[in-house]
Amino acid sequence: MKTMMTDVLVAHSSDVEKADFYKKTYLHVALAILAFIGVEAVLLQIVPDQLIFAMFAQRYIWLLIIGVFWLASILATKWSLSLDKSTQYFGLGFYVVLEAVIFLPLVKIATLYAGPQVIYQAAMLTIAMFSGISFIAFTSKRDFSFLRNIIVIGGFISLGLIVGGMLFAFNLGLWFSVGMVILASATILYQTSKLKDSYSTNQYVGASLQLFASIMLLFWYILSILMSRRS
């Protein structure tokens, strides 16, 4: 049975409704991160090391995984914006599991060759950057709409480089990771500034999914940078 939900944009809601939307959105982001940690810990215990390393060793398999991940992400986002609350949560949960699978080889290699502390450091840096960017988005009176085209173009360029690197077996290097950290930061800034214009007061699950996805992208490349400095 579908839950009837109002379709009032956050920007057009009362201050109390806005505060409630933001509180629920960031609570769900925190819960998604905790769920990701839990699922990742379980996967590291039950998935054989040989299979994890194969995800890195076989570049064509990895390319297939990214393609499936992209399609599944579209579905998860669609589900998270459904009128049915249970479907929304299914979309967010499904996306969390996808992220945990994608992160599996990176976290495994980081643990083996750089130590668990590098994951903790990357997580703390990610949280600090996300908090700072969110503060800027909420306190600044600037319009960050100009970032949209930059993010779209940067996303296509980065995807092309990633696919090219897999097909032709070349290393994208440290500066690519730095560029992706900048791109992820810009995405978080844009998404946060546009939350009130993009979602209704009852779409906090979908809003949290989008922020969670950008946070994980930021975490991936911060972790990659820290690992490269220790190699």
Rank of each mutant, 00 (worst) to 15 (best):
L43D: 13
V47L: 08
V47M: 07
P48C: 12
P48V: 11
P48T: 07
D49M: 09
D49W: 01
D49S: 10
Q50G: 15
Q50M: 05
L51K: 06
I52R: 00
F53G: 04
F53N: 11
A54Y: 13
Q58F: 13
Q58Y: 10
Q58N: 14
Q58I: 10
R59S: 12
R59G: 01
I61Q: 06
I61Y: 15
L63H: 11
L63A: 13
I65H: 02
I65C: 11
I66A: 07
G67K: 07
V68T: 03
V68A: 07
V68W: 02
A72N: 00
A72V: 02
S73D: 01
S73N: 07
I74M: 03
I74Q: 00
L75K: 03
A76F: 03
A76R: 05
T77K: 03
T77L: 06
K78D: 07
K78H: 03
W79P: 00
W79V: 00
S80L: 04
S80M: 04
S82C: 06
L83M: 09
L83V: 05
D84W: 08
D84E: 12
D84M: 03
K85V: 15
K85R: 13
S86R: 13
S86T: 14
T87C: 02
T87N: 12
T87A: 08
Q88F: 11
Y89L: 15
F90W: 12
G93C: 12
F94Y: 14
Y95P: 04
V96S: 05
V96Q: 02
V97E: 02
V97D: 05
L98P: 11
V101N: 02
V101S: 03
V101L: 15
F103A: 03
F103P: 04
L104G: 04
L104C: 09
L104A: 02
L104Q: 06
P105R: 01
L106T: 14
V107K: 02
V107N: 07
V107R: 03
V107C: 04
I109S: 10
I109A: 09
I109T: 10
I109P: 01
T111V: 12
L112W: 07
L112A: 14
L112N: 11
Y113C: 00
Y113I: 02
A114V: 11
A114C: 15
G115L: 13
G115M: 13
Q117D: 14
Q117I: 15
A122R: 08
A123Q: 05
A123N: 05
A123H: 08
M124Y: 15
M124Q: 10
L125Y: 15
L125R: 10
T126I: 02
I127A: 15
A128G: 08
M129C: 09
F130C: 08
F130K: 01
F130M: 12
S131F: 14
G132W: 03
